[in-house]
Design a protein around this nucleic acid. Structure first.
Length: 216
DNA sequence: CTCCCGATAT
DNA sequence: ATATCAGGAG
């Protein structure tokens, strides 16, 4: 099919561009083990990774593992993470999540999507971050950036993050899944921003549909 | 669909 | 003033 071939060529150009421009793209949340990445990612909901890193620096000294969070005083934890926003929900979720980790997994972080998403405050996006970056299991993380860029570039027409994830998995080679997500996020933060995207300094303008569709 | 919510850029 | 930030739960 002509349309499929065209899409395949587009994907190749995007992958080459991203690899050239962001060869070192990695997870920008600071963490030393899977558990820390899990907590940092829960905190990152509707918050910049930069802010999360400021908070987790002291947070992980006070609460080094799931056992510590499981026994945390809610008020104290709330204050510690307040600046990341949604701090009441996040506090409740983290304590509940860590109690589950202690009770069901001996304080360790499970390594399947189903087990991870069964934890409080852990949705598909968070689970995929942990699987990809802590356990090196190939995953495409569809966060707000990946969703926006994928739609602008015409890689999907879907609105639902899970559907977008499946669309992307069909057209991106498995071994690139995790890094692709990081590279899209780098690009989304610096060039293809939600507001006032810098299309003039983007090497993908020619194959991008954004200038014509303008989000819809 | 709504609610959660502080920090920052524009 | 308002949009947006590595979303998830009810």
């Amino acid at each position: 099919m002509a349309a499929e071939k065209k899409l395949k060529e587009k994907v190749e150009k995007i992958l080459i561009y991203l690899e050239e421009k962001y060869p070192e793209a990695v997870c920008s949340l600071n963490f030393k083990n899977p558990f820390q990445l899990l907590i940092a990612t829960i905190l990152s909901a509707q918050c910049t990774d930069k802010r999360v890193n400021v908070v987790t620096k002291d947070l992980f000294k006070k609460y080094p593992d799931a056992f510590a969070f499981a026994n945390a005083d809610p008020k104290e934890l709330q204050e510690a993470i307040r600046s990341t926003g949604f701090y009441r929900n996040k506090t409740k979720n983290i304590i509940s999540c860590c109690r589950d980790l202690v009770k069901k997994y001996g304080g360790e972080v499970p390594q399947t999507l189903e087990e991870l998403t069964s934890l409080a405050g852990v949705g598909r996006k968070t689970a995929n971050v942990v699987l990809g970056d802590a356990f090196n299991i190939p995953r495409i993380v569809v966060d707000t950036h990946v969703k926006r860029l994928s739609r602008r570039l015409g890689l999907t027409r879907e609105e639902n993050p899970e559907k977008i994830e499946f669309d992307l998995m069909k057209i991106i080679p498995t071994e690139r899944w995790t890094k692709f997500g990081h590279q899209m996020i780098y690009h989304g933060r610096t060039i293809c921003k939600a507001r006032n995207p810098k299309c003039d300094s983007c090497g993908l303008v020619e194959i991008c549909e954004y200038p014509s569709i303008k989000e819809e």
